[in-house]
Design a binder for these strands. Sequence first.
DNA 1: ATTTGTATGATGGTCTGACCATTATATTTT
DNA 2: AAAATATAATGGTCAGACCATCATACAAAT
Lengths: 236, 236
Amino acid sequence: MEFEPIKTNKVYEQVIQQIKEMIYRGDIRRGDKLPSERALKKQLGVSRASIREAFSALEMIGLIESRPGEGTFIKEVADKNLLEPLSLALLLEDDVAGELLELRRVLEVDCVRLAAERRNQEDINTLEEIVNKMEIRTGFEEDSINLDRDFHYTIARASKNNVLYYVMTSIMDAMDFHIKHTRTKLVSRPDTMNEFTAQHHRIFSAIKNEDPEKSMQEMGSHLEFVEKLINREIEG
Amino acid sequence: MEFEPIKTNKVYEQVIQQIKEMIYRGDIRRGDKLPSERALKKQLGVSRASIREAFSALEMIGLIESRPGEGTFIKEVADKNLLEPLSLALLLEDDVAGELLELRRVLEVDCVRLAAERRNQEDINTLEEIVNKMEIRTGFEEDSINLDRDFHYTIARASKNNVLYYVMTSIMDAMDFHIKHTRTKLVSRPDTMNEFTAQHHRIFSAIKNEDPEKSMQEMGSHLEFVEKLINREIEG
DNA sequence: ATTTGTATGATGGTCTGACCATTATATTTT
DNA sequence: AAAATATAATGGTCAGACCATCATACAAAT
């Protein structure tokens, strides 16, 4: 005789399940308004508390958005918070920085390859603007960090693969969190920043020239350079 | 004059924030028991409903687990559900299957490279067992699919990069969901299955022989083969 | 005719208090 | 010492209430 463990589905999980199915069936789409909590309470025959527990879970992962006085809506744009859970879980892991750097390199080298193949004029313009701004040093570390982030984000977007873009940005966010202090230190050194700028420029050129091989090579050495600096900084 | 939008932090979000900080500071670790809902209610000065909304969100993303009569605990193992939000968001995207396949190829080719470099005896044993089972065809499509999944999961684990493993498994799960029917069709053809088995065997050999280049090459052609079949199936 | 002000209803956000089923623990009984 | 029982604590669920916010319709003022 074999017994299977009895799983007691919580009410709020069943609510989530039903919403999930509605999305899958195409009953609800981006921007759509969900029924009000009080309406759902009647329709599903559960308490409002359970509805709210389901909604808070769905809101945390960025799938829906509740606005007081208005209602609850399926989010138009899937923002980066989609992988927030991953970031949270990484807080529990040890020595996650190294793994993140490794994964980032894996992803971004292919990212830039796809970007070099698929970039359009708008991508080029955005990248050029960022690279130009990088050359004018403001002296604020925050500016440098933001420009760097924008540069890599834009490349991810230029890959024209949304899933890749989501994952890529999430990994970078998690990285930012884990090596924040180190990063700030790095960009405060003028010589390091000069090298960064030069590397970024070479990556940009390769993308502009539609040269996937060159772009991968340049991105590879750029990330290698960054990783070396970070590791040296971390280890002392 | 510039105005900034006023953000009203919901109570349950602040609860999550506090738990997040406790994790980051190392106050709570894996397996630890959180204070009971009624205790937290007093400590934080909020209602139990708000605590529960926070908990349900954290439980959905797989960070905590509530057990009736016992309490609420930080999960020991971060399960695959970490990227459940991603899977959900992908339901809202169009033409996501192609993007997933592309990303999977990017990830897994490097995955297998790392696996070939870092695999230990246990990895080899597990892979060998799976490959052997694959050669004995049971006739049940489900068995074939499970073995295939195990094969790729094991390689991801052998990369010794947990973050990569998390992302890889999540992508594969999302893929399973989006091309489920197609997949079942493919493994029902004996000739296709024979080719799969041969390819898996070659990948396994490369990993066993610690040959990263060969493993990447074999994995690349395997995935190319799979993608071709899937696209042919989808398009007609 | 346009703007401004007001009243109303619907909605999400929060809290309280209650009851149940399950589990752990202490107590009693054997 | 072991087993049965009672008690307390915990998560799961619910009903009902109140508030702040927003949309809407309508009235008033310009």
